[in-house]
Design a binder for these strands. Structure first.
Length: 384
RNA sequence: GGGAAGUUGCCCGAGUGGCUAAAGGGGACAGACUGUAAAUCUGCUAGCGUACGCUUACCAUGGUUCGAAUCCAUGACUUCCCA
């Protein structure tokens, strides 16, 4: 027992342990060693931008969803309540009462999504707060300082999520800057023993730029790598093509994280292409907007056809929502704008994706991920 | 019994002569959402037609007018005030 503890302490944070490769597909089953526990991969990570997975308690995330890791966000927590405040409150885990792992996004996505409010230079990004319009400057060093203060288990490099579509020239310039920023992030990261810093591959939809980006980042030897700049509006086929070309460029002994993907089909396709981790706001956002993800496709609960439906959202689901409530009742909650509806759907959608990944891991272990995929699509109503 | 105000599409409500099949809400119906500026946003809501369009529409009936939801008369109903 002592020996095991010792071994655990010696395992560097961010260490990826490859357990098995699916003989049918090449998909990876693994374990990611982090400061707040081991994460079995492939994994879907719920997003809790503002130090809360919207509408859910940590207990619900643990017991109902069964999430070992969640995301939070550098930019948002820096603006409100402020990373120094969170540090003074004992760090992000204590602050939000979450004792499992946290991955913090760097704010790179906000460079993309708040494009009307910022200006990018070599030094960093000048932002105007979306809350009060005040001006702020986030550099790679600043993003590291914030994430060090938050104390997340996985930190992300400060990058630019290149918009789609972008020209070759812009994408190249942006990708090269992201590479230079990655080096600066690595150099200014002060808590390497507790916090694993992941690099982010950019390069838009251009093969040679993806190659260059991967090469630049791999040379810096991060404990894990993300594929960024995908799922930003490009067609699915293009996205899968770029992903398929990008993951082989990443080291096999490191975790690979596809950022921002969250529909069941994208998750499965990502795993098939060698991805170990995904995150997305989609399940929680859909939940609040009244759409459930189910094994037979999505359910827009406000539709009239569910008015008297006495069945659960998903009969094959083991979540609290599906074990206790009918579609008719859930429809009523959403029509009446009752907050419980958003909560129950959030539990369900997150559990649905978490369970999907549990099943994916099981299928990889048994070398039948392609069969699983085909069966899943059959029921879900996707063409293969 | 006397006086005043009012009656608009599923509901509330704007509109006081042509630009009105009628603003704006709400509701209903449908859709979108992918490292969260989102419990948000979009479409649609008289009938028929893909559409130019046609038909029926602003309490009822009659009238004025080239033209009426809008002006006049009568009736019905609603609300308020005084007895």
């Amino acid at each position: 027992m002592e020996k095991l503890e010792q071994k655990k302490a010696e395992t560097k944070v961010g260490t990826y342990e490859l357990i098995h490769v699916c003989k049918q597909t090449g998909a990876r089953l693994g374990r990611l060693h982090l400061a707040h526990g081991i994460v079995e991969t492939p994994i879907f990570m719920p997003v809790g931008t503002q130090a809360t997975v919207k509408s859910l308690t940590p207990d619900e995330l643990k017991e109902d969803v069964k999430a070992p890791i969640i995301l939070s966000n550098t930019y948002h927590l820096y603006l409100r309540p402020g990373h120094e405040l969170i540090k003074q409150c004992g760090g992000l885990h204590k602050f939000m009462n979450w004792d499992r792992n946290i991955l913090t996004d760097s704010g790179g996505f906000q460079v993309f999504s708040l494009s009307g409010l910022r200006k990018i230079t070599e030094e960093g990004v000048q932002f105007q707060s979306h809350i009060d319009g005040s001006r702020h400057f986030i550099s790679p060093e600043k993003a590291m300082e914030i994430q060090n203060a938050l104390g997340s288990d996985i930190m992300m490099c400060f990058d630019e999520c290149t918009p789609y579509p972008s020209t070759y020239d812009y994408t190249k310039k942006s990708m090269e800057r992201t590479s230079r920023w990655a080096k600066r992030c690595l150099d200014s990261h002060e808590r390497k023993e507790e916090q694993a810093l992941f690099g982010i591959v950019q390069g838009g939809m251009f093969k040679d730029l993806r190659e260059q980006s991967a090469k630049d980042l791999v040379a810096l030897d991060f404990p894990g790598y993300a594929v960024g700049g995908l799922s930003v509006g490009e067609p699915k086929e293009l996205m899968l093509e770029v992903l398929e070309q990008t993951t082989p460029l990443l080291p096999e002994n490191k975790a690979r994280y596809l950022m921002g993907v969250g529909t069941p089909d994208y998750l499965i396709e990502a795993v098939l292409r060698g991805i170990d981790m995904c995150d997305c706001v989609l399940p929680t956002r859909l939940a609040r907007n009244g759409t459930a993800m189910t094994s037979v496709g999505k359910v827009i609960i406000k539709n009239k056809k569910y008015e008297l439906d006495q069945s659960p959202i998903d009969a094959s689901c083991d979540c609290y929502c599906c074990k206790n409530y009918t579609k008719a009742y859930l429809r009523h909650l959403f029509k009446a704008n009752e907050i419980l509806g958003a909560r129950l759907f959030s539990v369900h959608n997150l559990r649905f994706l978490t369970r999907l990944m549990e099943n994916v891991r099981e299928a990889i272990k048994e070398d039948r991920l392609m069969d699983f995929r085909n069966e899943f699509y059959e029921k879900y109503g996707y063409e293969k």
